[in-house]
């Protein structure tokens, strides 16, 4: 066969394809395995629980678009969604500001105790959440921040700060010192330099940390379940879990909730897949 293929180049390509069939099949299969469940949930989100239990893998006919409105209001996914947005939004803004300021200081200024400070803050990356959460719970109780969105924001800032500083400092440290000297010669103060030079030039790194923090916090579960109890304060993951635990398992409504929860990420992903992939893998590629 090899000899035959040698004589007929077209045939060689054919044999090449045939040899590749198992491999191509695997590619297809794995794509279905990763993407399929999301398609399935999307279909279920348009069907009622009874329809789903009758035929779990059928197409939605008719499509109950009204379920989204119902989920948003009656099932309070709207409340959960806004809670998530507020908490994650505030935490990401605070993280970016506080993290960038600290990273700027660590990267730009020479001062006594700089190394110790850097090591201390970055050691925060090594702290397992379990070590934190038990007493963070007590501390937030003391500060009157337990069961408040503000408390959760602070907890989120605390957990993600080390990594944010780590990524930003790595980037800021590579910026040439001359830029900052030039800005000083141009008459700008340290704060203005931070605002007008570091932040705009550091945008790629900042975008990375924003994406990373947004996704991680949007999906966060452990701190939310420990630090929030009010139904009205639940974030999306908690809201969905609440439905999972209810007596009567409303699969259809949970599926709708899942779609509401993953939709922002999917939409962002469709538009900014490269940035999001880069963001999510930022800490790992060195």
């Amino acid at each position: 066969m090899a000899a035959l293929a040698e004589r007929h180049p077209g045939l060689a390509a054919w044999f090449g394809y045939i040899r590749r069939i198992p491999w191509l099949a695997f590619l297809l299969l794995y794509t279905i395995v990763t993407g399929g469940p999301f398609v399935w949930v999307a279909l279920m989100s348009l069907r009622t629980t009874n329809e789903i239990l009758d035929a779990p893998y059928a197409l939605p006919s008719p499509a109950h678009w009204g379920k989204f409105a119902e989920a948003w209001t009656a099932s309070k996914y709207g409340v959960y969604f806004w809670n998530s947005l507020i908490v994650v939004g505030c935490a990401v803004v605070l993280l970016t500001l506080i993290g960038a300021m600290a990273a700027h200081a660590l990267a730009r200024f020479q001062f006594r105790g700089r190394k110790a400070l850097r090591l201390a803050i970055l050691s925060g990356m090594m702290v397992p959440p379990q070590l934190l959460i038990l007493s963070l719970f007590q501390i937030l109780l003391q500060f009157g921040l337990y069961n408040t969105l503000a408390g959760l924001v602070l907890a989120y800032v605390a957990t993600q700060l080390a990594m944010t500083i780590y990524i930003l400092e790595g980037f800021f440290a590579q910026l040439p010192q001359d830029l900052f000297d030039a800005a000083r010669m141009d008459g700008y103060s340290d704060f203005e330099i931070f605002w007008k030079i570091t932040l705009p030039i550091g945008m790629p790194a900042i975008a990375t940390t924003v994406v990373l923090n947004f996704i991680i916090l949007w999906n966060e579960f452990l701190f939310a379940i420990v630090l929030l109890t009010d139904d009205d304060k639940r974030t999306l993951p908690l809201g969905i879990m609440h439905f999972m635990g209810a007596h009567q398992l409303d699969i259809g409504m949970i599926a709708t909730g899942l779609m509401i929860s993953i939709a922002p990420i999917i939409v962002l992903y469709a538009c900014f897949s490269e940035i999001m992939i880069k963001g999510m893998t930022a800490g790992a590629v060195r």
């Binding site: 040439p176 001359d178 830029l179 000297d181 030039a182 800005a183 010669m185 705009p200 030039i201 945008m203």
Partner: peptide, 13 residues
């Protein structure tokens, strides 16, 4: 005083 740097230090943004 105005200064010109070896790397020019132009603001890239």
């Amino acid at each position: 005083i105005a200064m010109v740097f070896q790397s020019y230090a132009l603001y890239p943004h």
